[in-house]
């Protein structure tokens, strides 16, 4: 491995719905975490590919055996297909970063891959197997830890990564987080989508809505607390485009995230040594796509009032916070360690 002189470090964030790569060669890319294989010969002929990734896969989904390998933050135990899917995802991200098979032949690639905390707990070995042989050296870490490292929130801080499939909370006590320091909730973006779909369907039983429409509405209008005007969207009702007011469903669905996240946050704080709790309360950082829900930070800060108040802020670059953190880890890890971390 060390014969290759040209070294490229990459940080990769394998998310439940979106994955990102940041590389020391300056490349940064995002892809939807979907992997699809053509279902039959015909599909393969039409698509002219053996495997499709990201948006491309989503757009051709009727012809594909479509996988979101880390959907609930976890590789399904023993699912060969999901294991292949994460591998394809990683290959694709490397290619996006200019590290295709050809380039990898004469470039030493050192990769830090951040995965949902739950996958770190359960699928560590499977993930390593899935990625075997792709890069020269591989370090797998939990995603919230990668975020924490990237923003140097390493001591007396908490990262709350609110993604699609999972919300990962992680307290940083100046050590590599153990299981005690981390919690995973299934209340995240996907869960909000489900609630929202249910609530809209209850209010407008005649309207035909798809999960993709709901998600788009959410990403545009989500909020907790006071609405800034009414949320009006258009959907077909009995075939006719109709305006729907979904202000209330939106508020209820989004606010559903607050109690579980707040409760878990308070619980984790309570486990911190008393003299450091105040510091942690004042350095709580939100990351992940769902942290963009308007007013969520304020609602969580309000929950902190119960225990003396605190500060909740959001990372500056939510799309790349994880992959940038991974890149920082990759760059900082000493050569000697990389030699041991055979990919």
């Amino acid at each position: 491995m060390s014969e290759k002189k040209n070294v490229v470090c990459v940080g990769i964030d394998l998310g439940t719905s979106r994955s990102a790569v940041s590389a020391s060669n300056g490349q940064r890319h995002i892809v939807d975490s979907y992997v699809g294989w053509p279902v039959d010969m015909v599909a393969r002929k039409i698509l002219k590919k053996n495997v499709l990734i990201g948006r491309e896969a989503l757009d051709s989904r009727p012809m594909l055996d479509l996988h979101r390998p880390l959907e609930r933050g976890l590789l399904k135990e023993g699912s060969e297909k999901d294991q292949q899917a994460v591998r394809q995802l990683l290959i694709h991200l490397l290619e996006l970063a200019g590290l295709g098979e050809k380039e990898r032949e004469n470039t030493q690639v050192r990769a830090v891959v951040g995965v949902p905390a739950e996958a770190m707990r359960v699928n560590k070995q499977q993930l390593r197997t899935a990625f075997a042989g792709l890069v020269d050296a591989l370090l797998i870490v939990s995603e919230p830890f990668a975020v924490a490292y990237g923003i140097e929130a390493l001591l007396h801080a908490m990262v709350i990564d609110i993604g699609a499939g999972t919300t990962d909370l992680c307290v940083m006590n100046g050590r590599y987080p153990t299981e005690e320091d981390q919690r995973t909730l299934l209340n995240a973006g996907d869960w909000v989508d489900e609630q929202l779909t249910r609530l809209i369907a209850a209010r407008y039983p005649e309207a035909s809505i798809s999960p993709y429409m709901v998600r788009e509405w959410k990403e545009r209008y989500s909020f907790v607390g006071e609405p800034h005007g009414n949320v009006l969207v258009t959907a077909p009702v009995n075939g006719k485009p109709t305006q729907l007011d979904i202000t209330e469903p939106m508020r209820i669905a989004c606010e559903g995230l607050v109690p579980p996240i707040a409760e878990t946050m308070l619980d984790l704080i309570a486990r911190v040594e008393p003299e450091f709790q105040e510091k942690v309360r004042h350095s709580i950082v939100l990351a992940g796509g769902s942290s963009a829900i308007r007013g969520l930070d304020v609602a969580l800060a309000a929950a902190l009032q119960e225990i003396g108040g605190g500060v909740v802020r959001s990372v500056e670059d939510p799309m790349f916070a994880g992959s940038d953190g991974g890149l920082a880890i990759a760059t900082d890890a000493p050569d000697g360690d990389w030699e041991k971390l055979v990919g």
């Binding site: 560590k124 070995q125 390593r128 591989l138 370090l139 797998i140 870490v141 830890f145 490292y149 140097e152 390493l154 100046g174 050590r175 590599y176 880890i329 900082d332 890890a333 000493p334 360690d337 041991k340 971390l341």
Partner: peptide, 15 residues
């Protein structure tokens, strides 16, 4: 950072 990295590497080596 150094300490945390060492622990992260250690954990990966075990796996």
């Amino acid at each position: 950072k150094r300490r945390i990295l060492r622990q992260a590497v250690q954990e990966n080596l075990m796996t």
